[in-house]
Design a protein around this nucleic acid. Sequence first.
DNA 1: ACTAAATAACTGACCGGTCAGTTACTTACA
DNA 2: TGTAAGTAACTGACCGGTCAGTTATTTAGT
Lengths: 225, 225
Amino acid sequence: MKCESQKTSSPIAEKPRKPKFRRRAEARPDEVLDAALELFTKRGFSRTTVDQVAKRAGLSKGSVYLYFPSKKALLAGLVRRAVVPVANMALGVIADYRGDPRPVIRQLVGMLASNMNDPKVFAVPKLVIREAVGAPEIAQMYREEVLDRALPAMTRLIAQGVEGGHIRKVDPELTIRSILGPLMMHLVMAEVFSIKPEGGLALDRLADNHLTILFAGLEPEEARL
Amino acid sequence: MKCESQKTSSPIAEKPRKPKFRRRAEARPDEVLDAALELFTKRGFSRTTVDQVAKRAGLSKGSVYLYFPSKKALLAGLVRRAVVPVANMALGVIADYRGDPRPVIRQLVGMLASNMNDPKVFAVPKLVIREAVGAPEIAQMYREEVLDRALPAMTRLIAQGVEGGHIRKVDPELTIRSILGPLMMHLVMAEVFSIKPEGGLALDRLADNHLTILFAGLEPEEARL
DNA sequence: ACTAAATAACTGACCGGTCAGTTACTTACA
DNA sequence: TGTAAGTAACTGACCGGTCAGTTATTTAGT
């Protein structure tokens, strides 16, 4: 690995008083990643050539290898760049909340749903799922940096809700699938099969419908006891 | 397209009185597809060579082209072979059922969950999702032959349940995501990221947990009125 | 002997990665 | 201010390898 993207340039001089002579790079890795994201998303990883990425980023193939040691490193860089904010978002919302988890879940689902409208944001997870077989190390990175942080937090949130008697006695780990699965399926249907509800993506309606069922389903069953 | 696979060979003689043993064709297309399924599943479409498929099926690359006009035709043949039974299964269960949809949903989810244990069955949908970008015509075939038949039937099932007052007033089309999404997410997490609940895939526990929440969530809200 | 089945060798295009060379900028010095 | 020296940034032709698809030939069943 050589660089991967690091925005550490300030116009003001630093301490070593030998700024040498920076040329006009620095923004380049990010530009390359932008181009790669666009092409990988549109045509898939293996059907995109490094040359195409270079052209789109406005430089030559050789220069791409100045910044990234391999084609796969492009994918890795892409994931890494998108990964931190997403994971942090989820964790920030959940934090160490205590009480009825439903407001937090509503917020989380709402955030995800609204993000799904922005292709830039969700292109990376889609890419990861699609290319995980050919590049297992990418899947693992994604897992380590996103899932292994976000899922335990969600599990805790739900478990805590169950213990506090705020929601039905469900399996916290499995219930995560019930919370996020419908969103994922919606995404897959729309992206892979172009199956959308009548009026566009309708993500707000989806979130509404889903949360209505989910929250009613999570209602504790005290009436039965 | 030349053949695509057709299992019309029975050990008992047919009408043309030719029980002799054909050199060794007839079963070949299916053997090739079996090999292709295995390799495509394990290594992805583009990273699998036709030669590898041929070797695994016990013949030469040239022979593969005797049965299939192109590499993509292998994928198409795979989809077509798996598609009819799946779609029929779903439609058979739903039929033109009237009444509370929940028993039917339970049966459907149960069938899907139990099928997910068999890699042979779910390898094809997984493949389709993964390769849909590089081979849109495959995705479309899958859509036309499976989804466009199964989804409307499910929509009808739910709509009918709403009208009959058996379940809450939900959006039938969107509720499909709430029914099947958790299963899909479970599959993706397990297959792509190797994230499984403690004790294996736990598909029955997943189905249980999911249906508990779902059915409670679908309960009509007469108490509120 | 005839023919369908099967093959192995071949071809041509493609692509990831390399590297010798060029360009454009910075600095040093007059 | 001008210019020579120095170098990071960049280029694009090229190499080695791979692979989908073709074809000339061999093999085996009748």
